[in-house]
Simulated assay, not measured.
Amino acid sequence: MQIFISAFLSLCTQIMMNATNNTSNSSCVIMTQPAGHLLMSIYIIAFILGLLFNLITIGPIIQQICRRNVLGIYLLSLSFSDLLYILTMPLWVYYFNNNHKWNLGQGLCSLAGFFYYSNLYISIYLLCCISIDRCLAITFPLRVQVFRRQRYAWIICGLVYVLVMALHCLVLYLDKLSDPLDDTVQTCYETFPMTESIAMFNLIRVGIGFLLPLVVISVCYWLIPTKVQQSRGVDDQGKRKVKLLSMGVIGIFSFCFAPYHILLMVRSIAFFYLGEKQSCSFEQAMYLPFTCSLALSSLNSMVDPVLYVLASNGVREDMRWFRWKNKQRQVTGSPLVDSKWKTRVTNLG
Rank of each mutant, 00 (worst) to 15 (best):
residue 213 P to G: 01
residue 214 L to V: 06
residue 216 V to T: 06
residue 217 I to N: 00
residue 218 S to R: 07
residue 220 C to A: 04
residue 221 Y to I: 01
residue 222 W to D: 03
residue 224 I to C: 02
residue 225 P to K: 03
residue 225 P to C: 10
residue 227 K to R: 15
residue 229 Q to R: 13
residue 229 Q to H: 13
residue 231 S to R: 10
residue 232 R to M: 13
residue 232 R to H: 14
residue 234 V to I: 15
residue 235 D to K: 09
residue 235 D to F: 12
residue 236 D to S: 15
residue 236 D to V: 09
residue 237 Q to E: 15
residue 237 Q to T: 12
residue 238 G to R: 07
residue 239 K to Q: 15
residue 240 R to S: 14
residue 241 K to W: 11
residue 245 L to Y: 04
residue 245 L to E: 13
residue 245 L to P: 02
residue 246 S to N: 11
residue 246 S to V: 00
residue 247 M to C: 13
residue 249 V to W: 00
residue 249 V to F: 03
residue 251 G to H: 09
residue 253 F to L: 11
residue 258 A to T: 15
residue 260 Y to D: 04
residue 260 Y to N: 05
residue 262 I to L: 14
residue 262 I to K: 07
residue 263 L to Q: 08
residue 266 V to W: 01
residue 267 R to G: 03
residue 269 I to H: 08
residue 270 A to V: 03
residue 272 F to R: 02
residue 273 Y to S: 14
residue 273 Y to P: 01
residue 275 G to H: 10
residue 275 G to L: 12
residue 276 E to R: 09
residue 279 S to V: 11
residue 280 C to D: 04
residue 281 S to N: 10
residue 282 F to H: 01
residue 284 Q to D: 10
residue 284 Q to K: 07
residue 284 Q to P: 04
residue 285 A to H: 06
residue 289 P to G: 08
residue 291 T to W: 06
residue 291 T to G: 03
residue 292 C to H: 11
residue 292 C to M: 14
residue 294 L to C: 11
